[in-house]
Computed example of a mutant assay.
Amino acid sequence: MSHHPFHTYAQHVFVDTDLTYRLTPEPENAEYQACTVTIADTLWRVRTAKITPTKPGAFVACWQRAADGTTEPFPADDRVHGLLVFVNENQRSGVFQFTQSHLEQLGVLSTPKQAGKRGFRLYPAWCTNLNPQATKTQAAQAPAFIDLTPPLTTTAQEQALQTLLHNSHM
């Protein structure tokens, strides 16, 4: 995982901190550079979204293998703090830092009341001319998005650290 986008992210976001991290590859969803990362005793899932040529935005898969071999959405009571999804398009880059609570609100995680999703579309702030449903989805995802297009601002760095370290199940 020497060229995983998380390494570049950590170089920029963790500057002037003593934070360390450990990436652990996940066998499923390898085409999305799936792994978990432990940061300051918190566990996050990590994915890299795929840009889709015929639709705006990107797509990410986020599922686990059930005991019977089928795939299923991650459960809301999973022990992770959230999902980091990296998006790179042309000269732009960003990360969605979804907390478990935000993923549950978006209907991504399975609960007794909702089935959850095995994947979903992402709309970074730079996506424009979206249809009404995509615009609504973009607005719902916006609080989790941090633009990492260089140069990274101090505000973006602080926002990233705030979510990673202080909002474990917000």
Rank of each mutant, 00 (worst) to 15 (best):
Q159E: 12
H81V: 10
Q97M: 13
Q138F: 02
K117H: 07
P75K: 12
V108H: 02
G94P: 05
A140I: 01
F59T: 01
Q97A: 12
D77N: 15
Q159I: 08
L148R: 08
L109R: 06
V108L: 03
T155I: 12
V108S: 03
V95T: 11
A160V: 06
Q91K: 14
V85R: 01
N131C: 07
V95P: 04
T99L: 03
R121N: 11
K136F: 11
Q64W: 10
G57Q: 03
P75Y: 09
F74R: 03
A156H: 08
G107N: 03
Q157S: 07
Q100N: 12
Q97S: 13
D68H: 09
G69H: 10
D78F: 13
A156L: 04
Q64D: 10
L165D: 00
A58C: 09
F86E: 00
L103E: 01
T71W: 09
F120I: 04
D68T: 06
T70E: 13
V80W: 11
F145R: 07
F59G: 04
G69P: 00
A61H: 02
T153P: 01
N90V: 14
T149Y: 02
L84A: 05
R92C: 07
T111W: 08
V108K: 00
F98V: 02
A139Q: 15
K117G: 00
L84R: 09
A76N: 05
Q100D: 09
A134G: 02
Q105N: 08
A156V: 05
G57Y: 01
D147G: 01
R92Y: 10
Y123E: 01
A144N: 02
N88D: 13
K113F: 09
Q114W: 09
F145G: 02
A134T: 05
P73K: 00
